[in-house]
Write a protein that binds this DNA or RNA. Sequence first.
DNA 1: CGCATAGTTCGTTCCTCATCGAAGCATTCT
DNA 2: AGAATGCTTCGATGAGGAACGAACTATGCG
Lengths: 224, 224
Amino acid sequence: MREGPDIARIASLVGDPARANMLNALMGGTALTASELAHEAGVSLPTASSHLGKLMEGGLLTVASQGRHRYYGLAGPQVAGMIEAITGVAEAVGPKRVRPGPRDGAMRVARVCYDHLAGEQAVAMLDRLVDKNVLVRDEQEIRLGPSAASHFAAIGIDVYTKPRRPVCRACLDWSVRRSHLAGTLGAAILDKILAEKWARREKDSRAVIFSPPGKQAFERVFLS
Amino acid sequence: MREGPDIARIASLVGDPARANMLNALMGGTALTASELAHEAGVSLPTASSHLGKLMEGGLLTVASQGRHRYYGLAGPQVAGMIEAITGVAEAVGPKRVRPGPRDGAMRVARVCYDHLAGEQAVAMLDRLVDKNVLVRDEQEIRLGPSAASHFAAIGIDVYTKPRRPVCRACLDWSVRRSHLAGTLGAAILDKILAEKWARREKDSRAVIFSPPGKQAFERVFLS
DNA sequence: CGCATAGTTCGTTCCTCATCGAAGCATTCT
DNA sequence: AGAATGCTTCGATGAGGAACGAACTATGCG
């Protein structure tokens, strides 16, 4: 009967399948319109609107009106982290290993996790960066190694303009069950991958598809 | 309409107030009986039993039968981490700053967070350990400093018998909004505090109450 | 100005699920 | 053995809330 913060309220917001699908879709990091989210969740527009209202009221979402469109996005990294934590538990307890369909396959290889890269490619990249001593891993944590600044500067990423978020953070990959790189550095790397057109976002999915030359370039820079 | 792991299923388990209260109570780290959890959640025994069945089926709880008692506990650190993540969001979005009652006050000072110490005391302790360079903090992450082994050996804690869990982890404190020390080291320190009888667990609460001499001893060892 | 598109609000229907009392097992105490 | 305690199962009740169609508001296009 004790009362801390109202955890049930937040959890029940995520606990509805339609809302969970919406939040999952927004884990892609890009804001989406109400119609897109309705389609994503498989419900009618009015229903979606109602759900979005509740998520807004619960503080999990932000909205930006542009003309007649309303773009909904996750309220912040803390919310994204919560979703990831829940996803991790769901993955761990639910051995629902049923169908690793084609789209699922692409998701396993590389996908967007809020603002950084996840999947096998991302895990391999982190492993390699640790091997090369560019990053240093202490158990579950990651920090910059001595050569980090020069290494990332060479590919146009500045690791020393530090905003409020940590530069590197470990994020547990739900498909590989090992850590990949999150934080501002992880976000910067994903930005570069997309900016260089090494890979493109799969439409309506978190999957990230590398082009053959893009994959080569990525491997040369991060996996060599 | 995409399908990853069934996040809604897990979230909806936490999304019921009665179940949320039970999980919250179990964040104290000690296993509780069905009756205790029923009282904790403010529901009848049959209702509690039903909830416990669902939490078990969802894989969030483990149970140990001892005679006619059944002790329920959290299924593991991953589940505890998820609860903390949800609590963090709930705390952040819910400015329900209403009544910091007496018990709440004690909770802010020191409480148990699954298996380690949280609250103002815990945050102060981590700060001091970082100041003394016993631990090193990189942004949100924590690792052992050079003097860590000898420092903790002197007070009877071995940091080098490493189990599967990380030795030190940062855990965001929902009351202070800054990190405290989790991981096996955090757990070992809480064990010592209770073993030395510097503090006792408040009955039916996560609060940890230091005795006056215990507080002195704690401050001498960890805050000096 | 109309017409089309994007979203929200309203009212209704329907179903899930939380709840409790009573009864049923299991274990321990005397 | 009988009684008491701890917990689960069963059945009935009731409320919250998810869903959609229809109507309403707002923005953009011709």
